[in-house]
């Protein structure tokens, strides 16, 4: 289980996480929703130790991430796949080398590595794209390669950072389907950061809304759909609040 306990994180004077507490149970996909800039990606980066909390702790299976030794952190990262918002593929490497890079340190032999590359590309429907370079791929294909790279080493957890942002609705639906397929076929625990509610309802078992640096509400899809909380309701229904309206009125046409 992944557990956030009273996590505080700021960048200079800006407070991003302000006492975030959240449990992410095994075997399910938890979707973290919230307005842009509310710290969803920052929260995700704490899970793999890319950021350390100013106060509080993030633990994975009881191990406090920011207290791990470099070896402990490497061991933790070998269990967590991370799909970045813009895929973060290595420009100078081909698709298969991007995936191979993640497999090279897992103690697999050459044949196993080749099998894993082939299987993970097949899972994201990109068989045959091995030799292509990231610059030759569309946005959707890059995200699929990012997912293939994350699932290739058979992680226990996969973290998706805004996997459908910037994609057309059809490609977004394909990515959603891949996330569902990854959980079903590989049995991984997923954490998805998104503000795309259609995607959240498709891939999530639970939804947690981050608001002003802490969890506003967490629950099943049905619980979130039927919420009485006006902030959550406005967000999931895409209705601007009075504050948002005032901002728009102040915007010159």
């Amino acid at each position: 289980m992944i557990r956030f306990t009273e996590v505080h994180k700021g960048f200079g004077p800006k407070v991003v996480l302000d006492g975030l507490t959240l449990d992410i149970p095994e075997g399910k996909t938890t979707v973290l929703i919230g307005f842009s800039g509310t710290g969803k990606s920052v929260a995700l980066k704490h899970i793999v130790g890319l950021l350390a909390p100013d106060q509080g702790a993030v633990s994975v299976e009881g191990r406090i991430v920011h207290e791990l030794s470099p070896e402990g952190l490497a061991e933790l990262r070998s269990q967590v796949g991370y799909v970045f918002q813009f895929a973060a593929l290595f420009d100078s490497l081909s698709v298969e080398d991007n995936i191979r890079l993640g497999l090279a340190r897992r103690g697999l032999d050459r044949y196993e590595i080749e099998d894993r590359i082939r299987d993970s590309l097949a899972l994201v429907d990109l068989a045959g794209a091995e030799e292509r370079f990231p610059a030759e791929l569309s946005g959707g294909m890059r995200k699929r390669v990012g997912i293939a790279r994350a699932i290739a080493f058979r992680p226990r957890y996969i973290l998706y950072d805004e996997p459908t942002t910037g994609l057309d609705p059809v490609t977004s639906a394909v990515i959603d389907e891949l996330m569902v397929r990854a959980r079903r076929e590989l049995g991984v625990t997923g954490v998805v950061v998104t503000h795309d509610m259609r995607s959240a309802y498709t891939v999530g078992d639970r939804i947690a809304m981050l608001y002003h640096g802490r969890i506003r509400q967490v629950g099943t899809i049905d619980e979130i759909r039927q919420t009485d909380d006006p902030v959550v309701r406005n967000f999931i229904e895409g209705r601007p609040t009075e504050d948002d309206r005032r901002l728009l009125e102040g915007t010159p046409s």
Partner: peptide, 16 residues
């Protein structure tokens, strides 16, 4: 590489 999160990606793949 830093601003496109490739350096972060390296770290998540357990590379220093």
């Amino acid at each position: 590489m830093r601003v496109t999160e490739q350096v972060d990606a390296l770290e998540t793949l357990a590379y220093n």
